[in-house]
């Protein structure tokens, strides 16, 4: 049931909401527009809104200067790799906690969450040294490993809250029907939890994609992800504004689309199921 309000009130609220929303969105919009301007236009003393001389050359220049595609591939490898690895470890664990809970299950869940709260700087130095000694610095697999570990608690928590909603009867029915554990999980649990697993995957891809502490501190040229790619533009003087925008747009566009697509499930994942 929609609340009844007068048309004037509705127009008022609508205008106000749109103005605020567009103000919040303006940095992204600015990036989008500037990416297609020439450098001269981007820093002109009389700023333009739409590009006067629409150009794609910034994108070419960015690719040339910093090899966008290499970084994008690294980002994809790390974010999807770590999430899928996390799901492989997380699904059996979440199954255990949701369907065969013991007295300690709650404590274990809490403890897993607590590992997420450990500030990265607290362990940066040993991880850096371990990585240096194991020759994992600046490698995609090293970074994937770290990303799996930092997102594993969230993956398990999200899966746990989704699994909890599946009636245990159905899994028991599968057991009665002769399904051993492997079949119970692959034929019954996973197909039923597809929406939950998909939103877990998406949220964790987003988090891994945007992670900027470990990616910057543990990589340089070879295994750099898009966060490292963009940081290489951190001191563009004058003429680089349009190219910076093009680079920024390239770095955020893929995940922005994923984010829009999955925003409905986001709240639940980000609050560990506490707000639905």
């Amino acid at each position: 049931m929609a609340r009844r309000v007068s048309v004037q009130t509705r127009i008022g609220f609508t205008v106000l909401a749109w103005v605020i929303a567009l103000l919040l969105f303006s940095p992204i919009l600015w990036t989008l527009l500037t990416a297609f301007k020439t450098e001269a236009e981007a820093i002109a003393s009389r700023p333009t809104f739409f590009p006067q001389n629409f150009t794609l050359e910034n994108f070419g220049a960015v690719q040339e200067r910093s090899d966008y595609f290499k970084h994008a591939i690294n980002s994809i490898l790390v974010s999807f790799g770590s999430t899928i690895l996390g799901l492989i470890i997380g699904i059996p664990a979440a199954w255990s906690m949701a369907f065969a809970p013991s007295k300690r299950t709650k404590d274990i869940l809490m403890w897993m969450l607590s590992t997420k709260m450990m500030p990265a700087v607290g362990v940066l130095i040993p991880i850096y040294l371990i990585f240096r000694d194991l020759r994992l610095l600046d490698t995609v697999h090293g970074l994937t490993l770290i990303m799996t570990l930092i997102n594993l608690p969230i993956i398990i928590w999200m899966l746990y809250t989704y699994f909890k909603e599946i009636p245990v009867d159905i899994l028991e029915a599968a057991r009665m029907d002769g399904a051993e554990l492997w079949n119970e999980i692959t034929h019954v649990l996973v197909p039923m939890a597809v929406p939950g697993i998909a939103s877990t995957l998406l949220l964790n891809v987003i988090l891994a994609w945007n992670e900027a502490f470990w990616t910057i501190t543990l990589t340089s040229g070879r295994a750099g992800t898009l966060t490292a790619f963009i940081s290489s533009f951190s001191s563009p003087q004058g003429l680089f504004l349009a190219k910076l925008s093009a680079a920024s747009l390239l770095a955020i566009a893929p995940i922005l689309l994923v984010g829009w697509f999955s925003q409905k499930q986001l709240v639940r994942g980000l609050t560990f199921g506490a707000v639905k």
């Binding site: 009636p167 009867d169 159905i170 028991e172 599968a174 057991r175 009665m176 051993e180 197909p191 597809v194």
Partner: peptide, 21 residues
């Protein structure tokens, strides 16, 4: 013996049908 090995069939109160099949 685990349920899968007992050769019994069960009908649940909630029917427990597999919704995705």
């Amino acid at each position: 013996a685990p349920p899968a090995r007992r050769g019994l069939a069960m009908v649940f109160q909630s029917y427990a049908l597999y919704p995705h099949m």
